[in-house]
């Protein structure tokens, strides 16, 4: 008897909650999709992982912009880097009725349905750093054009070794999409560009996104190729690890390094002049995304190609194809400008 009553109680409670839900407030889904705010709105920031220093720097940039033009930043923090784990956070921001959501997608589609729900509720959605499905957001605020980075790294290496000699690439994994595209770019430019005719790419090694593997590979590259003058490390974990390892063995200096990594992690090596880095200002990325979110929420822009987004001190940015806004060309980090980079 007791068991049956207990089950009945559970069912009744669930039904009660459901029915009271029906009678309750409007679910938010029936609001017009083109709501415009008359003033600054609250913007919800949804990173891949709440603890990622890249993302907290981005958040600080957004907060600085909020102090400049008003409005508020709500920063949420999923504990797993999957699109599915971002769903409850999107729903939370919808329930809290924020004016705009800025998301760094853990994958393209995981949270896309929830984001579409947000857009139907009149919330403007922007992706930053890492895109989501095109129909789930209006704008994608990108740090740099992917195609540009390979060329930048090669130019930096050429400058470091005086356009002459052997160099290697220490990539992330064999299947990494961006890295492989950059390496292809480098190879084709080496074959055609007369300015680079004296440079030779001797091998491509893989650091598997692990610090210890990168350190080990960097050391063995130096031993295997005695004439090696430089290594390009296009991976955020690899470049600091390689710099650390070669500085320990005393090879850094004879062998120069460049690549792609948070500038703050290799600050001292960049100051020494033997390491360069291709990076962008993550703080500015946060600011630009915040300006774009406010402009959208107040219907100052509609996210159509060719439109211009004013971003305060950062300048004005143009909306490109498929709603892409590019922060700007990535910077070669040298001892001169290293202090501009917070991350």
């Amino acid at each position: 008897m007791m068991r049956r009553r207990s089950i009945a109680l559970a069912v009744t409670l669930a039904l009660g909650a459901a029915v009271s839900g029906c009678a309750g407030e409007d679910g938010g889904a029936s609001k017009a999709a083109d709501t415009c705010s008359s003033g600054p709105v609250t913007v919800g920031y949804l990173p891949k992982l709440g603890t990622d220093p890249y993302m907290t720097t981005l958040r600080d940039g957004a907060k600085a912009a909020a102090e400049e033009i008003g409005g508020e930043v709500v920063y949420t923090a999923p504990s797993e880097a999957t699109g599915a784990a971002q769903i409850p956070f999107v729903n939370q921001l919808i329930a809290q009725k924020v004016g705009a959501i800025v998301i760094s997608g853990s994958d393209l589609n995981g949270a896309a349905a929830a984001l579409r729900k947000a857009r139907r509720a009149g919330i403007k959605v922007i992706s930053v750093d890492s895109d989501v499905a095109t129909d789930a957001r209006s704008l994608f605020v990108n740090q740099a054009k992917t195609s540009e980075l390979g060329a930048k790294m090669l130019d930096s290496m050429a400058e470091l070794i005086g356009h002459k000699g052997e160099f290697a690439v220490l990539s992330s994994t064999e299947t990494a999409v961006n890295q492989n595209a950059w390496i292809e770019d480098m190879k084709s430019r080496l074959a055609t560009d007369p300015k680079l005719k004296d440079m030779k790419l001797v091998t491509v090694a893989y650091g598997q996104e692990k610090a210890d593997v990168n350190a080990q590979k960097a050391k063995s590259l130096v031993q295997a190729y005695p004439k090696l003058k430089g290594i390009i490390v296009p991976a955020g974990i690899g470049l600091p690890a390689a710099a650390e390892a070669l500085s320990q063995t005393g090879d850094l200096g004879r062998v120069k390094l460049t690549g792609l990594a948070p500038a703050s992690l290799i600050k001292k090596y960049i100051r020494g002049g033997d390491v360069q880095d291709i990076w962008w200002n993550v703080h500015d990325l946060g600011g630009l995304s915040y300006h774009a979110a406010q402009a959208l929420a107040q219907c100052k822009v509609k996210a159509e190609p060719g439109e211009r987004i004013p971003a305060g001190e950062l300048g004005t940015y143009t909306v490109g194809e498929r709603g892409e806004v590019v922060l700007g060309p990535a910077t070669v980090v040298t001892p001169k400008n290293i202090d501009d980079f917070e991350f």
Binding site: G21, G24, E25, G27, G28, A29, P88, A95
Partner: peptide, 24 residues
């Protein structure tokens, strides 16, 4: 828990939150 949450968290008792939390 339900009573406390309904009183302290705006939007908790709403149907939208109910649906999302259950679906989750």
């Amino acid at each position: 828990l339900l009573v406390a949450a309904s009183l302290t968290q705006p939007g908790f008792a709403g149907g939208f939150n109910f649906a999302n939390s259950v679906s989750q």
